[in-house]
């Protein structure tokens, strides 16, 4: 009787261990959907005001000030955490501090970095939006990330090339190149968005391929996953080239816990609204749905998620709740 009880106890302990121990093999791991949700916190830009006309890039400083690029009025705007416009810089042109089509935006501790869709290079501003310099980068930039003031990681748009990240210094010189994976895709099929974690691992979401990948700082693939089971995107002949016309993944970012947030494109159940949440091991743990379609997502240091609404005249801020 005592022996049977011991066996039973041993069996119970083993069961408990099996359930509570971390997964080692992906196929054995059954992930329960985590209760991650978005709680709307703030809305910037109404249909009546003149705050935002078509915002594209967004970033936030440590004080909570919000910076956006607005392509319709060629500007870079600084907005307080309460939603008031503090400063506006820009104007149509190609001179210092001017824009033709301001786009991506990132920040270091002291500076803001802005790309222009029609003008090469990255313009640098201080936090008062005063022009500092232009970093001469000749390749078109599809995504970028400021690691330090003298280290800017850039995803270049290079036709018929492998997916690569170029690391530039503040003078626009390439310091090193990180090649992601082995294969070479046709034309611009390797276009991607990316984000680094604190260990310099890089997470990549491909624009025209159903692939999310994690690489270490040397470019070795740690894992690769697909979320939508979409093998191919539609292509059209444009100026003699077969170019993809459908987007699978639009953007990627990380929260403070290291979870990966990926904004889906045309093939999601809710196109341009579904955000897939993966844990650092690449296992999907939740799907969030934004109330409006967005072209990007941005997550700040305090786990607020920023997305677009009303075709770019509104910026919505959500608190990520766990």
């Amino acid at each position: 009787m005592k022996k049977t009880f011991c066996y039973f106890l041993f069996f119970l302990v083993m069961m408990f261990e099996a359930v509570s121990s971390p997964c080692e093999g992906e196929s054995l791991c059954i992930q329960k959907p985590k209760n991650i949700r978005l709680e709307q916190f703030l809305t910037l830009g109404s249909l009546e005001d003149d705050l935002l006309f078509q915002w594209v890039g967004v970033t936030v400083d440590l004080l909570g000030n919000i910076y956006v690029t607005d392509t319709l009025d060629y500007s870079l705007k600084k907005i307080s955490s309460a939603g008031n416009l503090l400063k506006r810089r820009g104007g149509r042109g190609q001179g210092p501090g001017e824009f033709m089509a301001p786009r991506l935006l990132d920040a270091s501790e002291n500076y803001l970095y802005v790309t222009d869709h029609l003008v090469s290079g990255i313009q640098v501003f201080n936090k008062d939006l005063q022009f500092v310099c232009r970093i001469p980068i000749q390749v078109p930039i599809t995504d970028f990330c400021v690691l330090r003031d003298d280290e800017i990681a850039v995803a270049p748009l290079i036709v018929n090339s492998q997916a690569q990240i170029f690391f530039y210094n503040d003078a626009g010189k390439i310091k090193r190149i990180l090649t992601l994976g082995q294969h070479r895709a046709d034309l611009i099929m390797d276009q991607f968005s990316f984000v680094f974690d604190e260990h310099k691992n890089v997470y990549v979401a491909y624009t025209f391929q159903d692939t999310i990948e994690k690489f270490d700082k040397k470019g070795s693939r740690i894992w690769s996953t697909e979320l939508l089971g979409k093998k191919k995107v539609k292509k059209e002949k444009i100026s003699g080239y077969d170019l993809p016309t459908e987007i699978i993944y639009k953007d990627v970012d990380l929260d403070n816990r290291g979870n990966i947030y990926i904004l889906g494109g045309s093939f999601s159940a809710n196109p341009s609204r579904d955000v897939y949440v993966l844990n650092p091991e690449g296992i999907q743990i939740a799907t969030l749905t934004l109330p409006d379609t967005s072209h990007c997502i941005y997550i700040d240091d305090k786990d607020f998620l920023y997305s677009r609404a009303n075709a770019g005249v509104t910026l919505k801020i959500f608190k990520i709740k766990y």
Binding site: L47, D50, F53, Q54, L72, D73, S75, N310, A311, V313
Partner: peptide, 18 residues
């Protein structure tokens, strides 16, 4: 489908910006 108010706001932004 964008909505009249959004179109009007974008036109306003374009006029102001330029």
């Amino acid at each position: 489908n964008l909505g009249e108010k959004i179109i009007a706001k974008k036109v306003r932004g374009f006029m102001n910006g330029n």
